[in-house]
Design a protein around this nucleic acid. Sequence first.
DNA 1: CATGAATGAGGTTTCATTCAT
DNA 2: GATGAATGAAACCTCATTCAT
Lengths: 233, 233, 233, 233
Amino acid sequence: MATTAAPRRRDADATRARILKAAGAEFARHGFAGARGERIAQRARSSERMIYYYFGSKDGLFRAVLEQAYAQLRDAERSVQLDPDDPWNALEQFCRFVWRYYLEHPEFISLLNTENLYRARHLRRSARLGELVSPIAQMLSRMLAGGAAKGVFRDDIDETELYVAIASLGYFCLSNRHTLSAVLGRDVAAREALERYWAGALRMIAGYVRREPHAGAGALEALPAAIAEVDRL
Amino acid sequence: MATTAAPRRRDADATRARILKAAGAEFARHGFAGARGERIAQRARSSERMIYYYFGSKDGLFRAVLEQAYAQLRDAERSVQLDPDDPWNALEQFCRFVWRYYLEHPEFISLLNTENLYRARHLRRSARLGELVSPIAQMLSRMLAGGAAKGVFRDDIDETELYVAIASLGYFCLSNRHTLSAVLGRDVAAREALERYWAGALRMIAGYVRREPHAGAGALEALPAAIAEVDRL
Amino acid sequence: MATTAAPRRRDADATRARILKAAGAEFARHGFAGARGERIAQRARSSERMIYYYFGSKDGLFRAVLEQAYAQLRDAERSVQLDPDDPWNALEQFCRFVWRYYLEHPEFISLLNTENLYRARHLRRSARLGELVSPIAQMLSRMLAGGAAKGVFRDDIDETELYVAIASLGYFCLSNRHTLSAVLGRDVAAREALERYWAGALRMIAGYVRREPHAGAGALEALPAAIAEVDRL
Amino acid sequence: MATTAAPRRRDADATRARILKAAGAEFARHGFAGARGERIAQRARSSERMIYYYFGSKDGLFRAVLEQAYAQLRDAERSVQLDPDDPWNALEQFCRFVWRYYLEHPEFISLLNTENLYRARHLRRSARLGELVSPIAQMLSRMLAGGAAKGVFRDDIDETELYVAIASLGYFCLSNRHTLSAVLGRDVAAREALERYWAGALRMIAGYVRREPHAGAGALEALPAAIAEVDRL
DNA sequence: CATGAATGAGGTTTCATTCAT
DNA sequence: GATGAATGAAACCTCATTCAT
């Protein structure tokens, strides 16, 4: 019995996994409301009935898809290795990891956009919400502390703000690639264009993080009063 | 005759406008597939039939909504006044305009996200696509030229890249406010948090645009080889 | 006033005529239920409103179309000239006229089929039903009498039956050309196939009409009892 | 288990069959465009939803109806028994079968007319088109060969042409009974009128098929040059 | 554990027609 | 006489989901 149950269970898991994968692709491609159970069943080589059997409802399925998407990101983040002795290199690696992840996981961007349309309804109902918090925040935190200790990074940088800024600079272009490309008349997410853009973004981030060589205040004085004031907020 | 005919015509225009407005709200709130004709008709105090009378189809309606959203942005952009004699102030005004526009027009963000889900299908079919190109690009171009002439801005900045970076820094937080807030456990788009974030973003942009006080190359040397290299790409 | 009214009236007539023509094409192509007012209006370079203005309803329009179709047939029939001195030639001309008319007026066939689907509802309500009776029946009648007088045609032929038979042999192939062609795998209404078929049909009709050279009864005896019996019914 | 499962399956088949039957009646009565899903569902004691469950679309349903109609004709044709030793009797039986089938299956005529309006669109998309070819053609072929061997039938008769002629003579009257009756002022498809007409039609067919007793050419000479010429085509 | 059959509710769209000058 | 604006009703079809083993 145990011997027959094992493969069975594994079949069940496999079916569940196939459905989850197919659902991820479908939700990413068509959004939540536009996703079709029929198409998911087909892609998963299963039946609509099985979707309800395993996930209970379309909302339940989408929640599972989101949880899986976040889990995959978290796993990828865990594999990132930043050199603690070379803060600049670590910063670059960090940025490149984030941007490359977005580039290589367009479904993730789409799923996030969809979930934001629903005001994070599914995410908030996730029992695994706590596990979703990114381990990368600590990584960034350590990196900033290391750079500050070495005197090359500013020591007053909010790690979350920096993370959001880095994410922003990678996300926007990819998320809006179709409208941007249509309006501008060229593919803004073509590999070459992207590399050039990332170079500028990296410079932007580096310039922001860098400890001003000749007294921080001095550099700020070069900025107009208005912006300097903003800095003090 | 003309006096009685006029109201008729205005009624038609008014009905059309009410539908368009209601549709904008509905599509922004529920996406394209999730939007319901019935709700649009109710909000517009009209009928579903009228939607098809004026716009032909759900796709046609969405296209009209997009065109209107872009037209509104363009109109707002036209009203922006940047001081040509004070590049730093102009830069700040520019950034703040963009960011405030996103903050005050969350439907615009949502519509863009939705349209990108559809790979700009509606936008590309718009006969008015040409009119949609932002007049603000020239504005930015002139501003950069002015700052470079005064010796305060770098003179090798790609205006589109800069625009995209500015937009990115404002867009991401607002577009993903619900998932970010759910995961981080606090409202990332609360007014105060936003002001703080914008201050940092402004500093980032300013740092990127600023002509290095002591010879451009010198400052770069402070960066590690990897990033400096990137700068030269 | 009269001078301006005249062109007006002619415009009105022209509009009416254009609508009628467009409607004929539309009803023939799509049947009654499948016909679309919008398409008729477009083809007629007029508006749907005008259709109702001139014809009152879809049924009224179809009735007018039918009346026109019958009127056109009647006019064509009136122009047929049969040689009263050569019954065989007259018979052939008659058959060829009917068959050619069907071939050249496929809309007429389609309109008839459609009207039969509606059990001649529109036709029966036509005030002009009386005018529709074919003048050709008398023509056929005279032709048969002439041939009988000359001793070449049988003298017991029912003119209506003969007319129906002739019509049948021309109608069926054309009316069912698409299903027949699909099933048989070749175009049964191709010009060449049609000519061959008509030749046989003509022979069939001629054989039926012809007075048996050697005593009518004698020829029948060549038929088996069953069919001879049938003849006596 | 099997015993309880069986009725389930049969229910599905029964539901499908009821829908198909109801649809046949509806399409025959109202044509394709005029047919109403609601009426079909009611007649079938099912729901509109089930129509789409089993047939996918209105077009799919119509295609299934057509396939069934052809299948029924084919089945009926298979049951026809023609006496191989009595060609004249076989010919009569054949004609009577065809004509009686039309008379007793007016829906078949209507469905054919409808499908021709759509240019055999549904038929051509049928995967079962190949199975639809009539087995009766071979029957006719054998019959003609038998009659020719016996020296009573001509030996140069195209079987398809003959079949089409026979079908024509039965089809026209029934297909156009309403318009014909309206115009002629009497029911052309009344039983008695029909019998009389069929008698003439049979004579026509027989005359066409019959081997001329005294040399084929001799009889033809009685025809005018024009028609005789046609015969030689 | 797994599934074929079924479905109520509601989606988008179209129809023939009328209103109001 | 002529027409742009409007519309109630209903068409076809789809959706997420449940029934009943």
